[in-house]
Amino acid sequence: MSIDTTTLLAILAMALVTYATRVAGLLVADRLALTGRAKAAFDAIPPAVLVAVIAPTALTSGWPEAIAAAITALVAFRLPLLATVVVGVVAVVLLRNFL
């Protein structure tokens, strides 16, 4: 049960940033009403970040991962989240064994 100093710093930094975003809304309530392009850019933040995180694994680590990512994306619109994850993991295990 060890805690590395740098890891502890990283966790504290993540915690502080996260808490700041959670309470910042309390300070700007009623004054923050984004519209138009600004709102589109703001709404795009979560999908843009999520995709950027996985892009190297999904696109450049090999054919099994790339094909499994494509299969996952196809089923993601039809299945609940957990089922999507199961399909993706099963697909990558099968593809790694047969490609």
């Binding site: 995709v51 990512a69 994306a73 989240l81 994850v85 993706g88 993991v89």
Partner: peptide, 8 residues
């Protein structure tokens, strides 16, 4: 990766 694709 699969989870993030699902979230996206």
């Amino acid at each position: 990766t699969a989870l993030f694709i699902g979230l996206v």
